[in-house]
Every structure is written in C-alpha cells, then in structure tokens.
C-alpha cells in the first residue's frame, strides 16, 4: 500500500465506475448481418437474429435452461490435475486458465446437468466456447466421462452440446488422449442401451469433431454452425484454392450425410423431446398390452390356404 493506492486510486475508480454504470450492451450487433438488436428482443428470440436467423453463441447457463425442463441440477465436475506439462508459450497456461475461470466462472470448458427433457430423464454436457475456445483437455475429458457415467447410473439419455476449437494444445499429448477417453464414455452409454445424442453448435472442430461429436445415435446441428475436422485456413493453405460457398456449415454437412437434421433453437427442445420419447418410450402401446391380437390379419396366412 502506498499513497497512490490509498488516496488517488479511489478517485480514479469513482471516475471510471460512473462511466461503467451506463449500460453498454443494450444493443447487440449481429455479427453476420450487422443488424442492431435490442437486448430484450435478443433474450426473447433465444439469441437468434430476427433479421438473418443467425444463431449467436450463447453461454452454458442459457443453453442448459433452453434444453432441459425446469428443475434440473448442475453436476459437480471432477477436478483433475492442472497444467500437467507446465506449458508456457508467450504466456503461462495457468494464466490463460485463470482468465477463463474469471470470464466464465466455470472450472473448465465443460458443464453438465441432470434433469428431464419433455419429461424424459437426460444428462446434458455442454462445451463452452468462451472457455479457451471450448478446447478439450483432461478437464473436459474427465467431465465428459463423469457425465456419461451419471447418465448410465440414472438410466438417462446422454446429450452432448459441442462448441470447440479442438484439443487443448497446452496439455499436449494428454489432450489427444481425450479422443479415446470420450469415445469410451460414449461406448458405456450405448452399451447401457441409452441414447447418445449430439447437438453440434458453432463451431465444432478438430479433436472434438473427430471423437464424441461424431459418434451420436442422432446428430442435430444448429443452423449455420461451422463443423469441421481441419479448419478452413489450414485447408486453404494446403490446397491453395478458394473454398466453396457454405463449405463446412451445418447445411453442407447435412447434405453430405453427416447430420440427421438441422434444427433451430426455437424447435430444439421439442425436437429433442420427441426423439427421446420415440427412443426410450417405444412400448407398450395400449393394444400391445392386452393379449388380444393387435388387429386381425388382412388375409389368412399362406400356410392355411
């Protein structure tokens, strides 16, 4: 402490904070078409641009409440080893982590919750692009495995919402090992006879797309979501040609057979609920419960003729 912090700084802070009290995010600019959207309108439209339909990135809290029925609980995520390689580039990995913690208030790029979707039990894991680009290291891998186990224990569907730049370089080879680890988690859910559904959101690339994001029983994606293994810049520098219009967007992947459907945010919960009910509440129909035949055969069996 010195005279500067004791006496001068409060005044400066007062000066600055007066400015900060003015809300600066009343209007949000659509990064696609440039339309200015009033914040209340944006909330109401689930952060979809009313002009161009651009599905803007949303944080985990919004995503969870958008998908799950009311009354879900957030799951405690495991706390794995931090910075196993003591990685340092221009700055320390631990400093980058601290910044992301402060920004998102989450321990890592994955959050999970348990609850129901349209009344069907479900565990949802969400990657947060705001946390170091949603990159997958040990924390994300451990969180994903824990959520899959939780789904198995609850006999619930497991739903992954992906948004990731890929593996977390700062964890080196251990981030690459999350590809098999998350794949094992998916296998555990599938072996338990439970549905594993992926919602691919903008952007889903690299190690995440090359593992659990592409192993779903059903693949949904948000409109316009960028979904790729190799990023556009890498491809451009390899092939040295311009990439086709709409390349690696959700609609492109749908056309190329990698997705089941592209679903808007407004339709998301309804679509999920329908799929989950069809998969998990397949039987019994009232008619099947009774011993009476479902309906008389249309014609006598061939053998009786």
């Amino acid at each position: 402490m010195n005279w500067l912090t004791n006496f001068v700084r409060p005044k400066i802070r007062a000066l600055v904070s007066r400015g900060a009290e003015l809300p600066d995010n009343l209007w949000v600019k659509c990064d696609k078409c440039g339309t200015m959207i009033f914040h209340r309108e944006l909330e109401a439209s689930l952060h979809v641009c009313s002009q161009c339909g651009n599905h803007m990135r949303i944080d985990t809290a919004k995503r969870l409440s958008l998908m799950l029925d009311e009354g879900f609980i957030k799951l405690e995520m495991p706390k794995p080893i931090v910075d196993p390689l003591k990685f340092r580039d221009k700055e320390r990995y631990t400093d980058r982590l601290k910044r992301s913690h402060a920004k998102t208030t989450e321990p890592d790029a994955i959050s999970s919750a348990a609850g129901t979707i349209g009344g069907v039990p479900a565990v949802v894991s969400v990657l947060d692009f705001g946390f170091m680009g949603g990159s997958m290291g040990i924390g994300v891998g451990d969180g994903f495995v824990a959520a899959a186990r939780e789904a198995v224990a609850r006999k619930a569907a497991f739903i992954a919402v992906t948004a990731s730049g890929g593996a977390r370089m700062q964890e080196g080879i251990l981030s690459l090992m999350q590809l098999p680890r998350t794949t094992i988690a998916v296998q555990m859910v599938k072996e338990a006879g439970l549905p594993y559904i992926v919602l691919l959101t903008d952007p889903t690339t690299g190690g995440v797309s090359a593992s659990f994001a592409m192993l779903g029983d059903v693949h949904l994606a948000e409109p316009g979501a960028y979904i790729a293994f190799a990023g556009a810049r890498v491809i451009e520098s390899t092939v040295r040609e311009k990439l086709p219009e709409g390349f690696q967007r959700a609609e492109y992947l749908l056309e190329h057979g990698m997705l089941d459907t592209v679903v808007t945010r407004a339709e998301l919960r309804g679509t999920l609920a329908k799929i989950l009910r069809l998969l998990m509440r397949a039987a019994p129909l009232p008619a099947l419960e009774s011993s009476a035949p479902l309906s008389p055969p249309l014609s006598p069996p061939l053998s009786a003729a």
Binding site: A210, I227, F229, I235, P244, F247, M258
Partner: peptide, 20 residues
C-alpha cells in the same frame, strides 16, 4: 489429410469411428 474432399466425405466422423 486436410482437404476439401476429405472434409466433404466426413474426415472427422471417419477418425472417430476408427477410434471407436
């Protein structure tokens, strides 16, 4: 391979399936 055709044919899915 990071190329247009590789992406079009689902490089990510192919790798994920191989790991699986």
């Amino acid at each position: 391979y990071p190329g247009i055709e590789a992406e079009a044919r689902g490089q990510a899915e192919a790798i994920a399936r191989a790991i699986d």
